[in-house]
Design a protein around this nucleic acid. Structure first.
Lengths: 229, 229
DNA sequence: GTTAAAAAATGACTTGAATCATGTTTATAT
DNA sequence: ATATAAACATGATTCAAGTCATTTTTTAAC
């Protein structure tokens, strides 16, 4: 997937757009979007933006995966969300005027478009159904984060790992989950060593298969039972 | 404060409104708001809405405190936020069409107004600056929750308690913090016994004073240092 | 003012998960 | 192909924080 020639996908035939918040755009709007957006190729581990810097627009993920994370006191990452194809990244900071409160980094080779703040805010102001989509999305994420907080507070690491694996399953779909143990640990909110031990347990209990660094879920129902929500 | 006669505050002279999202409304809009809203008195521990039920409008807190919480698997509460005077409660669920993902309960005697969904959404559609305020608020809360998640994952209970006490200080202002030990524990995300022991430590270390159930912060800087963010 | 119930407090004990140390395997660069 | 670093893995140990049991204090009800 180092074919850098597909740098300039047109929004018209962008598969990712179809189930994104831009999915319901009429042809005119897609034209406009296509002219305004610029497209770039990101290497694995390349950053999109950093906590504390000022947002100049939003990113739209055409291909790849992006981790959204904060850093705790000693610099340890906490992954808040992993974005998959079709997701718009960084629009939360468009409204507040504040600098980014999170950082974003490509987890794998990715194709990511960029829409300038001005253009994006203009869409929000003039396209009510798009705006409603954005507001719905904001609310949904707020709800998700409330659940995340509750899980952190009340579930064991083992249960949380099951939850996170299920979330990752939805993001990676038929692909195998492909994250470093450290990233996974930073998502679950545990030490890397603990995570590794638990993965081994999960393997022995028949929940997952481990193909070197890639994970495959082979007993989803079991994980659901374990995760318990 | 069982004076139920102030049930019907006018929005015009509502002190709480002034630093709320309704604060920048022009007179006409305040008139409209005042006609649309209804006002009610809530007893301590009276619920505003329950997780899973469908939202019919938003609440605006004129006087009192309201806890916003979820419930984990075994029914244990996790407090996500404590709303103070001037806050609009429950607007996140206005956009998603989903049922409430959290519950809300008055922590003390409160005066709370209600604005029907239809009226609220109409305001959103027709008043761009109000809408921007709401979007800014959604984004800010999203950022806050990312920090909350990170704290849960990476800080000790002791550090988290310091954080939460500082947050509560901002909500309760000059008043003393007035929560049951159980609620405090459910906010910090710990067992009630652990919380009680830590409060005792904090008292002995000169961070707080305990007046039966009410807490007074007497060394804010010390707590800030302890909380570490 | 007395009583019952709820909330707060304390002690004893257990354990999940972090930390530290070290070894092994897998990527990546030259 | 080989070197070097990064990622993964495992063992030993420690400790923060949970749980359970019981007592004391406070609050609310009669």
């Amino acid at each position: 997937m180092s074919d850098k020639s597909f740098k300039h996908v047109s929004c018209h035939n962008c598969e990712a757009r179809k189930d994104s918040l831009f999915g319901s755009f009429c042809d005119n709007h897609v034209d406009e979007l296509n002219e305004q957006k610029s497209c770039a190729y990101y290497k694995k581990n390349q950053g999109l933006f950093l906590d504390g810097s000022f947002p100049r627009g939003v990113f739209c993920l055409n291909k790849g995966k992006v981790k959204i994370f904060t850093r705790g006191e000693e610099g340890k990452e906490q992954i808040i969300h992993i974005a998959g194809e079709g997701e718009i990244i960084g629009f939360r900071s468009m409204f507040s005027g504040d600098p980014y409160s999170v950082s974003a980094t490509a987890l794998e080779e990715s194709n990511i478009c960029f829409i300038a703040k001005e253009d994006f805010l203009n869409m929000i102001d003039t396209n009510a159904s798009f705006r409603n989509g954005i507001m719905r999305e904001l609310s949904k994420e707020l709800a998700e984060r409330a659940v995340f907080i509750t899980n952190m507070a009340q579930k064991s690491v083992r249960e949380r790992l099951a939850c996170i694996l299920l979330i990752l399953k939805d993001i990676y779909k038929e692909e195998e989950i492909n994250l470093t143990r450290e990233d996974l640990a930073n998502y679950v909110g545990t030490a890397t060593e603990t995570l590794i031990r638990l993965l081994k347990d999960f393997k022995e209990e028949g929940f997952i298969e481990i193909h070197t660094r890639k994970l495959e879920i082979i007993n989803k129902d079991g994980l659901i039972r374990l995760a318990g929500n």
